[in-house]
Nucleic acid binder design. Structure first.
Length: 833
RNA sequence: GCCGGAGUGGCGUAAUGGCAGCCGCGCUCGACUUAAAAUCGAGUGGGGAAACCCGUGCGGGUUCGAAUCCCGCCUCCGGCACCA
């Protein structure tokens, strides 16, 4: 029981810091493995330490905090860690532009952001904090690189990088704006460099297969990953080249259309282009190859763009028809997909068709639609189309084979198997499975990343750095100005080393790793963050893994999540973890946009959390960001409306003024008391379900409805009846994960002991929530004509009888006899005449 | 362009096959006040005096019944492998 003689205003700026300090000092959310309790690993994607948290972060971390606090109240042993994805481009840019060393700037930013986490009332197990840029973390990133290396999953090959010829530096895609260097405006070209790759394609099939088991993932993310991996079945076919020993190997998903293959197209970068180009065509081919290397992949794959290409002068033989067909190059063929060469079948492929019409290449029909092959074959998208007055159409749909020798009269599908058998029997090709997924390029010609732990010896060649020599430390004294190579290459003391095999002089690899490598295993390090002997202990990973609830931005739906899944599978194969998949349930939140774009420092549209928290307090900010809309949808930021949430919390505060007799066993049984208790239990049910399914906006709405009901009840009956106390207690518990400070404060003012966050989550009582009447909606011919109140146990017969007797229904029936009546129990009667 | 998603009052949204607009913002009117702020109360999709009609981006379909399911289109957002 608590009495407040002089009502005190709600002052978040006063109460919030007090509880933030209390939670931190009491280590409330610091956890150890406890086999007696159900564990729950709640994880939010760790941020890049840009220095300031904005409203997009606030949404992300508030959701994570609600999850952690909610499951704690449910009695789980909840691990909720936080760390920093601290390597990367922005720190290096700041070093170049402002001369601030990343090793100085990054910890400063981390401190600032950590302060902002405290101010938002977000609780973590800070004992597990990590930062990917600290040697005690990247030592193990390097260790894992060596593990991949030993397992044959890391290798080097030549690959192009964006290159600014003026600055003599490699550019990230982000630094290339409209084909030009963002710094100096020079036209960007490509430079071929020997770079490190991870062999993720070896895991393509497994990454695809286990997607089906990830039932706790949103369908859209699973679909995106499935399409990204892009499994297709087809055939690799050899087209002999006139005058060469080596044939051109093409990959096609439509080997059945080979009789219509009237030319071949190689990617401009295809290794055979140089040798097969005739002298007459050389100048044109070279110019085209140069041009193609300037284009981005997105430009090249655009089906809108007019097709371009050049004839190489070479001819190949169609292995099925024996015809001599010309070999072209074109930028719509990518060297990274399939074999980098295609058989062009203009009669059966839109792109090939456009290309053939433009360059006057022959078009042959090989598939004709069959009437009623399948119902639904009248789809206009796949009907034969004659473009630009061509005499032969393009048709990509299913049908029957024509002009195809032994395949004639077969149906699509049948013909695919038949032609593969023929090709295999004659040694001209074979059925294959192809993936769109490419190996993961991890080399970066940058300073601020984990050095790749490899040494090159003039005598022994490439050698891994011995484990006991890890970490390969980033030197502190570096010149950041762009020029030629990775900044590390200019640090003699770093580059010059000794060969671990022969002890002779050797040079270090000067590339660093893609930051996605750092973030592909951080969730494992959290399980055992201080381990100096290994990345993490197996038994600790076994206790905590998999992550039960992973929350983060939808922009990570493909790359980060795919790489983390890949890492987990490799580590499972190495016996280091017991799970095949790292993230059991995934929630991808939408972005908070401002001026129509994702908030980011580079776009200058950031709304910092500080402003919000200083003006209204953390609880208002948290509740408002949860209330703003469905968390999986993007939301355009506007601070009008925050005011309403602030008012709501003031109203809640006032609900706790006056005497509230918590703990009274006696519940009055007046209508009003029963109605309030019903509302309490409906709210328990709703808020519980909404938190479980991440519908926080409707959970907030539900507690507002309960607060409104309490207010009406109080105005009529005061605060001293037990029903009110029951409502008061439950409202705080239900709001506690979302608005942790005000609920903690009011909990103590009500006389509650311990922390509200250590209380049990309220239990829904169906009996108290039940209502004795239901409102039935009566429709006549699909339109609502009346509503009638009936006892909740009304039978179908009674409901229909009552509906038919309604005056309004009689009026709309207009003397006609109902032909059909549909009854939805407890909800609706639909009468059809 | 390709892959994925979203479009509902003046605004954020609710309803995921069964009452379109819950909850909140904004606005209007009223109470309290010397006045204002704060607070409290009433109202608020469009048309119509009313009965009622219309209405969930656009066009079609399925159904007794569609914001919700299906087909086609338009617009906006995210990802597209070196931003993370």
């Amino acid at each position: 029981m608590s009495t407040n003689d002089a009502p005190e205003r709600y002052r978040p700026q006063v109460i919030e810091p007090v509880w933030q300090r209390t939670w931190l000092d009491s280590h409330m959310y610091f956890v150890e493995p406890d086999p007696q309790k159900r564990k729950l690993y709640a994880l939010v994607m760790f941020p890049y330490p840009s220095g300031d948290l904005h409203m997009g972060h606030m949404r992300n971390y508030t959701i994570g905090d609600v999850v952690a606090r909610y499951y704690t109240m449910l009695g789980y042993n909840v691990m909720n860690p936080m760390g920093w994805d601290a390597f990367g481009l922005p720190a290096e840019n700041a070093a170049i532009q402002q001369g601030i060393h990343p090793a100085v700037r990054t910890p400063d930013n981390i401190d600032r952001m950590k302060e902002q986490f405290f101010k938002m009332g977000i609780v973590y197990d800070w004992d597990r904090e990590l930062a990917s840029c600290f040697p005690d973390y990247y030592k193990w990133t390097q260790w894992l690189f060596l593990l991949f290396y030993e397992r044959g999953l890391a290798y080097r090959k030549l690959a192009p990088a964006n290159w600014c010829p003026k600055d003599e530096t490699v550019l990230a895609n982000e630094q290339v704006v409209d084909g030009r260097c963002e710094r100096c405006g020079t036209e960007v070209t490509k430079k071929d460099l020997t770079q490190w790759f991870f062999r993720i394609t070896e895991y393509a099939e497994r990454l695809l297969e286990s997607l089906d088991q990830l039932e706790g993932w949103p369908d859209r993310v699973r679909t995106m990953q499935r399409n990204w991996i892009g499994r297709s079945t087809g055939a690799e076919i050899a087209f002999p080249l006139s005058g060469y020993d080596e044939p051109v190997r093409v990959y096609t998903t439509r080997p059945d259309t080979i009789y219509g293959a009237t030319f071949l197209v190689l990617a401009p970068e295809h290794p055979m282009v140089k040798q097969i180009t005739t002298d007459k065509q050389r100048a044109a081919v070279d110019a085209y190859v140069m041009q193609a290397r300037k284009e981005s992949e997105i430009e090249r794959l655009s089906t809108d763009k007019e097709k371009t290409g050049v004839f190489t002068g070479a001819y190949a033989t169609n292995p099925m028809t024996g015809d001599q067909i010309p070999v072209w190059i074109a930028d719509y063929v990518l060297v990274t997909y399939g074999t980098g060469a295609i058989q062009a079948v203009p009669g059966g492929d839109e792109r090939d068709y456009d290309f053939a019409l433009k360059y006057g290449l022959p078009v042959i029909s090989v598939v004709e639609p069959v009437e009623a092959v399948e119902s639904g074959s009248n789809d206009p998208a796949v009907a034969p189309v004659y473009k630009n007055g061509a005499s032969v159409p393009v048709y990509t749909g299913p049908g029957v084979m024509v002009n195809s020798g032994p395949l004639n009269d077969m149906l699509t599908g049948q013909s695919k198997h038949a032609v593969i058998s023929l090709l295999e029997a004659e040694g001209k090709g074979k059925g294959t499975i192809n993936y769109r997924l490419r190996d993961w390029l991890i080399s970066r010609q940058r300073y601020w990343g984990a050095p790749i732990p490899i040494v090159y010896c003039p005598d022994c060649g490439e050698a891994p750095v011995p484990v006991e020599q890890l970490p390969v430390l980033l030197p502190a004294d570096v010149e950041f100005k762009p020029g030629g190579e990775s900044p590390l290459a200019r640090v003699e003391s770093f580059v010059n080393t000794t060969c671990p095999r022969c002890g002779g002089p050797a040079r270090r690899e000067t590339d660093t790793m893609d930051t996605f490598v750092d973030s592909s295993w951080y969730f494992l390090r959290y399980c055992d963050p201080h381990n100096a002997e290994a990345p993490f202990r197996r038994d600790l990973a076994d206790y905590w893994m998999a992550v039960d609830q992973y929350t983060g931005g939808v922009e990570h739906a493909i790359l980060h999540l795919l790489y983390s899944r890949f890492f987990t599978k490799v580590l499972a194969d190495a016996g280091m973890v017991g799970v095949q998949e790292p993230f059991k349930r995934l929630f991808t939140q939408g972005m908070i946009t401002k001026d129509g774009a994702k908030m980011s420092k580079s776009k200058g549209n950031v709304v910092p959390v500080d402003e919000m928290v200083e003006k209204y307090g953390a609880d208002t900010g948290r509740l408002f960001i949860l209330f703003i809309g469905p968390p999986e949808d993007d939301a355009e930021w506007s601070d009008s409306g925050a005011e309403g949430t602030y008012r709501f919390l003031h109203r809640v505060w006032r609900l706790y003024e006056g005497n509230i007799s918590i703990g009274s066993a006696h519940i009055e049984t007046e209508q009003a008391d029963r109605a309030l208790l019903r509302q309490v239990h409906l709210t328990i049910q709703k808020v519980t379900a909404d938190i479980e399914r991440f519908h926080f906006n409707t959970a907030v709405s539900a507690v507002m409805i309960l607060a409104n009901a309490m207010q009406s009840y109080r105005d009529a009956h005061g605060t001293q009846r037990a029903a009110y106390a029951e409502a008061a207690r439950n409202l705080l518990l239900l709001m506690a994960p979302m608005a942790p400070h005000i609920t903690e404060e009011l909990w103590h003012r009500l006389g509650g002991h311990d922390s509200i966050h250590r209380q049990s989550w309220p239990q829904f009582d169906a009996e108290l929530a039940a209502s004795d009447v239901v409102t039935l909606v009566i429709q006549v011919n699909g339109k609502v004509r009346d509503k009638i109140e009936m006892p909740s146990d009304v039978s179908q017969e009674e409901a229909i009888e009552a509906a038919l007797q309604s005056d309004k229904v009689q009026q709309h029936l207009n003397g006609k006899t109902p032909r059909q009546v549909h009854y939805v129990p407890g909800r609706l009667v639909s009468i059809v005449t």
